[in-house]
Computed example of a mutant assay.
Amino acid sequence: MDSAGLRELLTFYADAGVDEPLWDMPADRFAETQQEAEQRAAGRQQPARPAAASAGNRPAPSPATPKAAVPDDAQAARAREIAAGAANLDELRAQLEAFDGCNLKTTAKSTVFADGNPQASIMLVGEAPGRDEDLQGLPFVGRSGKLLDRILAAIGLDRSSVYISNVIAWRPPGNRDPSPLETEICRPFIERHIELVAPKVLVTLGNPSTKLLLRTQTGIMRMRGNWAVHRTPSGSEIPTMPTLHPAYLLRNPAHKALAWRDFLEIRAKLDAVGSA
């Protein structure tokens, strides 16, 4: 394995929470230490502890890390209550950064809130941060973000004239898919986020954000290119265009033509509402 591959592997293990190396010498985890044998013989039996390396070679204990929250319906209900109490975007960001009810936060480096202009007429929502986004604390800054920037530029937009966020604020370890319950816990925050921004046009990037925000089980290939409606918790209706995620387009460049048609529709809608 070359150095780049080894670096990627080590990064994956670190993101997954593996923080201890293997010992140089094997340890017999079933062996009983001499002290434990003497205590057992004296009638003071204690639970057996696995034999480890000698004290001289043992590394210093790692500092305590926050315990992961067990995702459940109670956490989802708590998230709904907290998100509903946010009066503005600053409050929502602070509440999201303080929220400890989603276990994804314990392995992420950053809470990725949003980027762009919150006064913009158009808001785009993806699924979850990737590695680059987690490091920089901003959505869509990696390869897919660069493609998104080029697509936006082609219809006369940039980060100063759009607002961008994700359904999930924390990078799942190893870039795995968020679980349905993790997504449900994060739903109230992104729904309140959209409600506070109140864009004239909403764009859902990819299958997960489309299904969540439009409350549908229909796949993105059937949804894309067709205007739908996102209903906020307060009952407002926002015209919504589902389209393909830039990461998908990087893997399937032939489908860029489909996304281009969608963004031409988005440009026409913005012109019709007198925006951007």
Rank of each mutant, 00 (worst) to 15 (best):
G274S: 09
V125P: 00
S3P: 05
A52Q: 00
R231D: 03
A272N: 07
Y163P: 01
E97H: 15
M223D: 02
P208D: 05
L96T: 11
Y163A: 01
E184Q: 10
R93D: 11
W260R: 15
Y163N: 03
G116Q: 15
L212D: 04
I220K: 05
M221L: 11
P246C: 06
N226Y: 04
E38K: 12
G126V: 09
N103M: 08
A60Q: 07
K269Y: 13
N57H: 11
Q119S: 12
P71T: 09
S160T: 12
Q136D: 05
R49E: 15
I122T: 07
L213T: 04
L181K: 09
M25V: 13
T11I: 02
A42Y: 03
E81H: 07
K109H: 08
I185D: 12
E184A: 15
V203Y: 04
P21S: 14
A69L: 07
Q45Y: 12
P66S: 12
A76M: 05
E81C: 01
P50D: 08
A257S: 14
P173Y: 07
A254W: 03
L96W: 04
R131M: 02
A79P: 00
L181H: 07
A128I: 10
V197E: 04
P208E: 03
A4Q: 09
W227M: 12
L157K: 01
S3A: 15
A51F: 03
R231P: 03
L22T: 14
G142T: 06
A53M: 14
D134A: 11
R40G: 00
D262C: 14
L181S: 09
A74S: 05
F189I: 10
V125M: 00
